[in-house]
Write a protein that binds this DNA or RNA. Structure first.
Lengths: 151, 151
DNA sequence: GTTAATGCAAAACTTTTGCAAATTG
DNA sequence: CAATTTGCAAAAGTTTTGCATTAAC
């Protein structure tokens, strides 16, 4: 099962590169592998630090450039910004969802509410908008932080 | 009517400053006035450029510091980020709402859907989250851009 | 062998901060 | 007059870019 999944995102990436007339490189493979292995929200900086531990010769710019590529291939999406840096998450085999974010500890919880989804389409329709996507973030304090009385 | 409104946000600002033990200054007044006169979404840089045209002696840092203050006083809120810079909008006498944003021309349309609002509270409750706010942005192509075929 | 991609360092951004001078209450 | 706020310049961040070198097709 694990292998199937691994094969899939990589295959999709290589196909996308080929379609765009771009080349597959060692660095691009290493980056996409590490990103999908982590299986969580990452900033470019976190990803870079993880990569450096395992593969000495990787540049920050390559990480940025590859994340942009992956976004273009719809394998990765920008979730939002946290403390001025962009947060990315895998979107391949990871269907759309929204987020609860804890103002206190920064924890991110994913959720999907079908009603919200369909109301959004209705709103877009009403304004004669061709909806291409959306982003919903609910801010608040999570259960653990409430318990700890951290406000 | 116009005068009433003008008096209100300024009064609220001064009261908030006093409450926090902070001082009213010429610069803070100029900035809040200009922000509310514009009555639209602004980046710190746009606001600064507008201010500079009218009042030569204003520093960029003061604009940033005052925007932060105004946010703390709930007179202004952060709407999101556009091209790496923060977008602010007036929130005094400007109740909560969400946004449709055109990927093509950048136009921002405000909307409010009560159903979405209440479902969000339900979602927060389900995850035992104490919701303090939320942000919903629907991306897409607006009617005008569709017509112009700008895709 | 062409052409594209990399790593590095430097640049370009936005936002924050330290500090002497000015302004406020 | 004591304490806060300002403007400036410099720092601190993140992200992008220019360019010689390396790697892919």
């Amino acid at each position: 099962m694990q292998m199937k999944q691994v094969k899939d995102y990589k295959q999709a990436f290589h196909e996308c590169l080929k379609r765009m007339g771009l080349r597959s490189t060692v660095q691009r493979d290493v980056i996409v592998d590490e990103f999908f292995a982590q299986d969580r929200h990452l900033t470019p900086e976190e990803l870079y630090r993880i990569l450096r531990r395992k593969h000495r010769r990787i540049g920050f710019s390559t990480v940025y450039r590859t994340l942009k590529l992956l976004t273009g291939c719809s394998l990765v999406r920008e979730v939002g910004t946290s403390n001025g840096t962009t947060l990315f998450e895998a979107s391949f085999n990871h269907p759309h969802h929204d987020h609860l974010i804890c103002d206190c500890c920064g924890k991110l919880i994913e959720f999907l509410d079908q009603e919200i989804e369909s109301i959004q389409e209705r709103v877009a329709l009403k304004h004669q908008f061709h909806m291409t996507g959306h982003r919903l973030i609910i801010q608040g304090i999570c259960r653990e932080c409430i318990k700890k009385g951290k406000s």
